[in-house]
Design a protein around this nucleic acid. Structure first.
Lengths: 127, 127
DNA sequence: TACATAGTGTTATATTATAACAATTTAAAT
DNA sequence: ATTTAAATTGTTATAATATAACACTATGTA
């Protein structure tokens, strides 16, 4: 298991406590009192946390969320649902979905080592 | 059917001819000789073209690609393969994939109206 | 101890995207 | 034809997201 560095731990804790995905500059603002002053310090920690699978980037939102899937050491197969009204994001952990996508072959028979899927719609509260 | 405005047509033609996804400022640079001078003019056309399904945004790359799927009037269900070395991007049109994802229900039984899927790996040339 | 690797701090800058406002064009409806 | 609404354009300024480059420090390990 990976032991996080100081900045990585500070930033992971913040994201992990957040009920919604956090943007890089919102993270920066929040950790300034802890001595992390520059965007680059944030982005470096984010890059590493993504790399080791502790957080995921929601690409369509440029925001970061803690991995909800305890078994997910490295982010090779991610799926999220996103509410287009309240912006609530939930990580989907469906064995059948991940199995389907991991085994998916394109028309040339190519398989891919990694995927990211984002579903959009309205959450229960918003419909 | 939608008839494109002048700026939309110029920008669509450029993206459509491009063998790879184009970024907004690369588009801007290319259309400056045609009188489109400002980023906002590009982004407005891009927004509209995405909205009507003529192009798609590759979220992980902040780049735009013409829709390869002639039946795809509106982009509610998109899937791409992305080569992590040469950055070649291909739109996947697989009836079984789109059927699977369109019908996918999360653990609360929720169905979603839209999705975007990006597969990553190495293309034939790059492996 | 030396060496490599990863992490930090800092300044500057690049890249991606939108706000706000005024004018013009287009399409449709009287 | 004339009015009206909606979409599009043009423009300046600025916001938001992300990386380059360089010097230094900590950590693990041979």
């Amino acid at each position: 298991m990976h032991t996080l560095s100081k900045n990585q731990q500070i930033i992971f804790d913040l994201i992990d406590k957040s009920p919604e995905p956090m943007k890089a500059y919102a993270i920066l603002f929040n950790v300034q009192k802890k001595g992390i002053k520059a965007p680059l310090q944030v982005y470096r920690a984010l890059d590493k946390l993504v790399e080791i699978g502790k957080i995921h980037k929601i690409e369509s939102r440029n925001a970061f969320i803690a991995c909800q899937n305890s078994s997910c050491q490295v982010s090779k197969a991610t799926a999220f649902s996103i509410c287009e009204i309240c912006e609530k994001v939930t990580e989907i952990s469906s064995a059948s979905l991940s199995k389907y996508l991991t085994n998916f072959k394109d028309k040339d028979g190519m398989k891919y080592s990694k995927y990211n899927l984002e579903f959009f719609g309205l959450c229960k509260k918003c419909r």
